[in-house]
């Protein structure tokens, strides 16, 4: 092995002061990963609907349970947040919203909007289906 030369390294994440956009960048990735595995639930539900009453009742028993509701609620938030956070990225892709105030506003918008939309969808769900 050749001798290691001690070169100065560029500082990594933990050196910097945490900013909202940094945190939300990681949240965007984490919600993406959560949604990735959450598609299993969606596929299970569709397959059950195509399979018959017994299989569908199993899904409904799961989504009606406390743990199931928590997972579906978390899935709803991950979807809403990833959606708004992703729209923010599309704005940036087009070259807009890079000023300090603009990027902060977009990021707060995604954060607050994601939580609000989640609550709205669940209010609608309870109003329509009685929480099933």
């Amino acid at each position: 092995m050749t001798a290691r030369i001690e070169r100065p390294l560029s500082p990594h994440l933990q050196i910097y002061r945490w900013t909202l956009t940094m945190a939300l960048s990681i949240v965007h990735r984490l919600t993406g990963i959560a949604l990735y595995f959450g598609t299993l639930l969606l596929a299970w539900w569709l397959i059950a609907a195509a399979s018959g009453p017994g299989a569908y009742a199993n899904v409904q028993a799961f989504t009606g349970s406390i743990i199931g509701k928590l997972i579906v609620f978390g899935y709803t938030w991950a979807l809403m947040h990833h959606l708004l956070s992703g729209l923010r990225h599309l704005v940036w892709d087009l070259g807009y919203g890079f000023k300090a105030t603009e990027r902060e506003a977009l990021t707060w918008g995604a954060l607050i909007g994601g939580v609000s939309l989640t609550v709205l969808v669940w209010i609608a769900a309870y109003a329509i289906g009685g929480g099933r």
């Binding site: 009453p53 299989a55 009742a57 959606l83 769900a125 289906g129």
Partner: peptide, 21 residues
Amino acid sequence: MALLIVPVIVVVLMLLGRNQA
């Protein structure tokens, strides 16, 4: 998906409280 999300959510809400049939 940004365009499809509203109709998809509507479809999911339509299914709530219904049995398999």
